[in-house]
Design a protein around this nucleic acid. Structure first.
Length: 425
RNA sequence: GCGAUCGUAGCUCAGUUGGUUAGAGCAUCGGUUUGUGGUACCGAGGGUCGGGGGUUCAAGUCCCCUCGAUCGCCCCA
């Protein structure tokens, strides 16, 4: 189409109402995380490649195919963060945050994955992230889930999103279950899809949630993890579910919800919607008690989740209750001084004021209407018999709104008679 | 990496079985009427029809390649 540089694939320029919704998600998260005592942290957008490679497993082809990795000038390999967790764990180790343990952390920002874009999926996208590092208590899992639930409530996402919950058990449980799964699928090798035959070697648990109908019979008859839960693991999961019930957070068990990497233990969960096509997970997380140790730190239990800001933003309504905004229109630049005074007073009164930079009065009126401003303040010439300005309200219907803009503008402009007089209704 | 659909002015789109100088609305710019409760009037600028190649007397319209978009598969830390 047009010449000049183009947006690179999988990136987005977020503008206008979409940007407002994006910001609303972030604001809600910031509000809620404070209510739970999560501390805001900022970590680098890139890390040594090793941080992510070790967190994901060096053998995984995620590392080679789906991360933005590049050498810096000194020859070190760096990687744009594909998630927050690994970087936060690195910081926990390298910055001595162990002294704060258990520490509750919240952050948000861009993350990067080299993937094919599709609905709700970008190469640079944005996440909210909450982690509790240094606590192995089921209470920590519960608190994160209640926090996530409240975030959705805060955003008005009350329908069409369900919390799916599972347990992966402790290390002993996981190993036993995995072995049983492999044995089961090996026995049904002939029935599996080509994709699942590959999964059998690389990531057998993923066969459980395969979308290929050919895999369903074998997947549906696969041994359930419950048969392998140790007493400790079972007790842990029961405490989590009991906590959710006590907090009034609805959930459903999804025994096929799995995590491929070995350091995941116990709780795994996703808040899932059917409103976003194939990318249905809006908040996902779990307990990763083995990760920090894998990164070279001390054995440290931890649990956390991440949420896609774009996906949440797609689920919320247009921002309502925006602050009042008025257009100011002057007819003659000679009135500039008075106009600036009025603008300053309105803004001091918490009323947003904008002024079209060009066009005659007619065009400016049309612009204000098009932009759906709440009103127009016409600045009158010096000595005008009807006063210094005239307020025209542009709001639709809503009688309450009518009064609101009038009251607010007159209050902000203070003693209107000092500016001259104000036209009454 | 794979598949399907799509790609015409800044934006949203029309463009008949391929046929003369490619259209509309909105936006932009200019002017008229004006002096104000979302649509007054007139006019103008703006497109090598994503890019390249091919078929044809003739291609926005057909074929191939390429790039991009959308949705899905794989993957999903």
């Amino acid at each position: 189409m047009s010449k000049g540089p183009q947006r690179v694939r999988g990136t987005q320029d977020i503008f206008g109402e979409e940007a407002d919704r994006f910001q609303r998600v972030v604001a809600a998260f910031d509000k809620v995380r404070r209510l739970y005592g999560f501390r805001r942290v900022e970590t680098p957008v890139f890390e040594a490649t090793e941080v992510f490679a070790r967190s994901i497993g060096e053998t995984s082809d995620i590392v080679s195919k789906e991360m933005y990795t590049f050498p810096d000038r000194g020859g070190d390999s760096l990687t744009l963060r594909p998630e927050f967790t690994a970087g936060l764990c690195r910081a926990y180790i390298s910055e001595g945050w162990q002294q704060h343990a258990p520490v509750k952390l919240a952050t948000h920002g861009p993350v990067f994955r080299y993937e094919r874009p599709q609905k709700g999926r970008y190469r640079q996208f944005h996440q909210l992230d909450a982690e509790i590092i240094g606590s192995g208590e089921p209470l920590a899992d519960v608190e994160l889930l209640v926090l996530a639930h409240q975030l959705l409530q805060e955003l008005g996402i009350t329908e069409g999103v369900m919390l799916q919950l599972n347990t992966l058990g402790d290390a002993a449980t996981r190993d036993a279950w995995r072995a049983a799964l492999v044995a089961h699928f090996e026995a049904h090798r002939a029935e599996l899809s080509e994709d699942s035959l590959v999964r059998l070697d690389k990531n057998p648990m993923r066969i459980l949630d395969s979308k290929d109908p050919r895999d369903r019979p074998a997947a549906d008859t696969a041994p359930a993890i419950d048969e392998f839960l140790t007493d400790e693991a079972r007790t842990f999961f029961e405490k989590v579910t009991a906590g959710l019930d006590a907090a009034g957070v609805p959930w459903t068990r999804n025994a096929r919800l799995v995590r491929g990497l070995d350091y995941y233990r116990h709780t795994a969960f996703e808040f899932v919607t059917d409103r976003l096509g194939a990318q249905g997970a809006v908040i996902a997380g779990g307990r990763y008690d083995g990760l920090i140790e894998a990164l070279g730190g001390p054995p440290t239990p931890a649990v956390g989740w991440a949420a896609g800001i774009e996906r949440l933003a797609m689920l919320i309504e247009t921002v309502k209750n925006r602050p009042l905004i008025v257009s100011i229109i002057i007819e003659d630049e000679q009135d500039r001084g008075r106009a600036e005074l009025i603008k300053a007073r309105l803004r001091a009164g918490n009323i947003a004021v904008v002024e079209a930079f060009r066009g005659n009065a007619k065009k400016r009126v049309e612009w204000a209407k098009r932009e759906k401003h709440d009103g127009i303040v016409f600045v009158r010439p010096e000595g005008h018999p009807l006063g210094a300005f005239h307020l025209q309200r542009l709001d639709e219907g809503a009688g309450e709104e009518h009064g609101r803009i009038r009251t607010a503008v007159f209050a902000a402009l203070g003693e209107p008679m000092m500016l001259s007089s104000v036209k009454s209704e």
